[in-house]
Design a protein around this nucleic acid. Structure first.
Length: 256
DNA sequence: CTGGGGAGGGGGCCC
DNA sequence: CGGGCCCCCTCCCCA
């Protein structure tokens, strides 16, 4: 619903340049699908040979400067100026510093239907954090377990639990629509849906995205060889979900 | 039905 | 230890 996305380019401060992704195809060559796919077929045919053409991602977020610096903070001053500035002013190299570590060249992704550990039911629960939320279970094993009082999840560290609890308390609220998020950066990303800011642009088609992950996914559409490959027909897909659909709808019907 | 975009969540890592 | 950021993933919806 928040497709109210296409509004205005408020913060088009700077668009990271993914042009370097262009070379992704090169990397592709280095990781032949065939090999990757054969990596393992534990989960039948969905086994996906991951072609990380995105191996170059880390360095991609360079400002393309095809942006209009209309830094007019929306209704919400985008909170953490630091983050904003980091992603914006720090010359969109936000990642550069951080993500300087390129993803492992050949992350052979084996498709294993992961469970989405969402405690949606409790999500609505917006009560303030309480101390008891972090109830430490009597260490029965060798390691302590911190249980969330809102859901069955448990963590081995208090920090992890606290982080998780935020998904229940949702402390970051959008002043524009009131929607709450567990983390500030999620809120920032959400705010872009209001402002229309799309800091991540595709070097191939000039399309811009508000979310880096979405750009990454989009880049897959430009790749000749997609990231996820069907172990049976070798067809590649840009998304795991597509591969799954493909598998379950015919190609790999035998195993699924 | 498939492909792709939009949006959001979680865990991990670094500072 | 907390904050910030990134990657990966998933769900929903639309063309």
């Amino acid at each position: 619903m928040p497709r109210s996305f296409l509004v205005k380019n408020y913060f088009a401060r700077q668009k990271p340049n993914y042009s370097e992704l262009e070379c992704q195809n090169d990397s592709l060559e280095r990781y032949p699908l065939a090999e990757l796919s054969s990596a393992d077929s534990t989960s039948t045919c969905f086994t996906t040979g991951l072609v990380w053409d995105l191996s170059v991602l880390p360095a991609l977020y360079l400002p393309t400067s095809q942006t209009e610096p209309s830094a007019t903070p929306g209704p919400l001053d985008l909170s953490s100026p630091s983050s904003l500035s980091s992603s914006a002013s720090s010359s969109g190299e936000e990642d550069e510093g951080r993500t300087s570590d390129p993803p492992s060249p050949e992350p052979v992704h084996t498709y294993a239907p992961r469970q989405r550990m969402k405690c949606t039911g409790v999500m609505a629960h917006m009560s303030p954090p309480e101390e008891e939320e972090e109830r430490e279970t009597p260490v029965t094993a060798t390691r302590p377990a911190f249980l969330c009082k809102h859901c069955p999840k448990e963590y081995t560290s208090l920090g992890a639990l606290k982080m998780h609890i935020r998904s229940h308390t949702l402390p970051c609220v959008c002043t524009t629509c009131g929607k709450a998020f567990s983390r500030p950066w999620l809120l920032r990303g959400h705010i872009r849906t209001h402002t229309g800011e799309r800091p991540f642009s595709c070097p191939h088609c000039n399309r811009a995205f508000a979310d880096r992950s979405n750009l990454r996914a989009h880049l897959q559409t430009h790749a000749e060889v997609k990231k996820y490959q069907c172990g049976v027909c070798s067809r590649t897909f840009s998304r795991m979900s597509l591969l799954q659909k493909h598998s379950s709808s015919g190609c790999c019907s035998t195993s699924v």
